[in-house]
Each structure stands twice: as structure tokens, then as C-alpha cells.
Amino acid sequence: MARHEIQVTVNGVQGVYRVEARKTLCDFLRHDLGLTGTHAGCEHGSCGACTVLVDSVPVRSCLMLAVQSHGSRIVTVEGLAQDGKLHPLQKAFADHHGLQCGFCTPGFLLTLVYLLGRGKRMGEEELRRELSGNLCRCTGYQKIVEAALDAQAAQAEEKS
């Protein structure tokens, strides 16, 4: 099948790749680039496990084709820690046990990077509503919510 050239910047690294038109962004990241931290949980846009940031906006990478990401900047879970230092959300998840099996975790983290990046302070109820596009079967969400609220509070403190 014909392949198309795309140019994308993934976790700060720019590259030119050739992909089939039908290949999903999720499969491209996982199998072509070896970034296996992005997980496919449902492949129909319902569970949010495959969420990545495309030009700073959370996207279900199972519903986007790799060719559609041409020219964009993509951030996956592998791009969150900087210089060996965990992203504050990663640290909050680890501190609060905001995960069990860890399969949905990258999707939650990237959704939250976006949500907290808006700089709009969320109460617990709003946060829970905003997270309703990401499914977790292990935690019952409580420790995820606690981790996110804690990271939000730390972020607010840092800004003030």
C-alpha cells in the first residue's frame, strides 16, 4: 500500500517518516517510533488510554491517522519528564498511588497536562467531569483525582 511522507516533531525530536494513509497515529507512535507508553485500550475513541497532545491539545491517537498529524508537534508520556526529572503530574500520580496496572495512566497524564495547562482552577466536581473521557478500571478514580488536585495546588503555589 502507498506510503506518504509526513514531518512531525515528537517529544521535541523532528523527523520525516513514510506511513500508510490508514495507519493510526497511535500505531505510528507505538510501532514505528517505539514509543510504547501510549496504549491502545479500545481503538474506538472511548477509553482515552491513547491520548497524546497534538499541538498542545489532547487527541485520541487511535482516532487520528498519522498522516493527519503532518506538520504538528506531538507530546507523549515519554516526553513529560525533563532532564530525568518527573513532570509534577507524574510525581503526584506516583506519590498518591494514582494508578494500579498503569495502562490508562499515560492517557490521564496527558489529558491533565492539558487541563492544568489552561491555568483555570478546577474544583473536584469539574475535574471529575473533565476526566470523564478517560477510563480507569483499577483505581475507582479517587487517587487519580487526589493526585490531580494536589498537582494543581502545587502549580498554583508555584505561580503565586
Binding site: R30, L35, T36, H39, E78, L99, G102, L109
Partner: peptide, 16 residues
């Protein structure tokens, strides 16, 4: 202790 690798997307699942 499992959590530290998993928050970095470093868990190795079967599809990996």
C-alpha cells in the same frame, strides 16, 4: 514502587 516506571510509560505490556 511499581508506580514510578508506570507513570513514565515504561511498563512493558504484551503489545510492547
Amino acid at each position: 514502587r511499581e508506580d514510578l516506571a508506570l507513570v513514565q510509560g515504561q511498563g512493558t505490556y504484551v503489545d510492547d
